[in-house]
Write a protein that binds this DNA or RNA. Structure first.
Length: 344
DNA sequence: AAGGCGTGGCA
DNA sequence: TTGCCAAGCCT
């Protein structure tokens, strides 16, 4: 066994995390769900979503038979919603192609939508104790530091090298413990900022520690200027009920429910003149910002109250949701917050 | 190959 | 406030 694996497994014995909700089980459904939720998402954020999701969908069959909107509702606020769609699709594939039983080989697992090499490796290691490596943010950081890799870990060439290193250091036994150990070590000791080198079992074998490079490594992603998008959203309030429209399949927040959206104010007022009986009063107007990984968004909201739906001409274009129904609905976080703030 | 895809925590 | 980025995958 590599020195790296040996030391990490030893360290995990007394310092690793052993009581997370998806641990102490080898049920591949639980492992799969947790690994997908944890993609680009922090542990503390995932825990309540994981519990709630399992409570409503305790097994693959119940998930496969659900309505997609209910699945999306449980995912609302967690982000990266294609994960929820893929999970739902994969559950149905497992039902039809694998007779409802989660597949047991890496090759079959990685073919499921939403499962890439790292997630498939984690499922194999945790559920079946099969020796496959993972390469998440933690592992990348630990390996870059130990081997003094000064380039950005997301660069394809560097990533290829990291997979090879991950492969080389993989133990043949106890991969489940090793996999948990290297992630825990990255999260708790080899942290991005202020790593705890004095508590690190690998500090004597770490090139970054030797050379005092822990601040330079891991290297930052090459920066770029994010574009700013401006748009107008309409908040129609009919007796504390809000009008929402389902977003199309082309842009961000695919398939989620959101406020009617317009490129400019004229388009918004035209829509109102067209769909509402007479010119309605804008009760409140303001701006709200949201930042994404690839652009910034400035929303100008227009809060309008109407007294009756009698002459409303867009009933078939969306749905009216009572404010107390908003929480469980499949609505993006910034929109949910905006509605809550303005209505309050 | 590079960019789309969310959200919240933290410095 | 702003920027960075976390248990990545898909096209």
């Amino acid at each position: 066994m590599s020195l790296l694996a040996k030391k990490l497994i030893q360290w995990h014995e007394s310092h690793g995390r052993k009581n997370l909700p998806w641990q102490k089980t080898s049920d591949p459904y639980h492992i799969w769900l947790s690994e997908v939720m944890l993609q680009q998402t922090q542990v503390a954020t995932v825990i309540p979503y994981f519990k709630k999701f399992l409570k409503q969908f305790p097994d693959i069959r119940s998930l496969a038979h659900a309505r997609q909107d209910d699945v999306m509702g449980l995912w609302s606020g967690l982000g990266y919603y294609s994960r929820a769609r893929n999970l739902y699709d994969a559950a149905n594939i497992i039902l039809t192609k694998h007779k409802g039983v989660f597949p047991k080989t890496f090759e079959e697992i990685i073919q499921l939508p939403g499962i890439g090499r790292s997630t498939a490796g984690a499922i194999c290691a945790f559920s079946y104790k099969q020796s496959y490596p993972i390469l998440d943010g933690n592992v990348k950081r630990v390996l870059c530091r130990i081997f003094a890799i000064k380039e950005w870990a997301g660069k394809p060439e560097v990533e290829k090298k990291l997979w090879a290193i991950a492969e080389e250091n993989l133990p043949k036994s106890d991969v489940d413990i090793y996999t948990q150990a290297i992630m825990d070590h990255g999260a708790l000791i080899c942290r991005r900022a202020a790593p705890l080198c004095h508590e690190c079992p690998l500090s004597k074998n770490c090139k970054s520690h030797d050379n005092n490079w822990t601040k330079e490594i891991p290297a930052k992603k090459p920066g770029k200027i994010l574009p700013l998008k401006r748009l107008n959203v309409l908040m129609l309030d009919n007796n504390k009920s809000i009008f929402l429209m389902k977003r199309n399949e082309k842009a961000v927040w695919k398939g989620l429910w959101s406020l009617p959206e317009f490129a400019n104010e004229k388009a918004l007022s035209d829509w109102m003149l067209n769909k509402l009986d007479k010119k309605s009063l804008v009760v409140k107007k303001g701006k709200s910002n949201a930042n994404f990984s690839h652009y910034k968004l400035e929303m100008t909201y227009h809060y309008v109250t109407i007294k009756s739906l009698k002459n409303f001409k867009a009933m078939h274009e969306g749905l009216w949701l009572d404010t107390n129904e908003l929480q469980a609905a499949a609505i993006p976080s910034p929109i949910k917050k905006l509605i809550n703030n303005v209505m309050r």
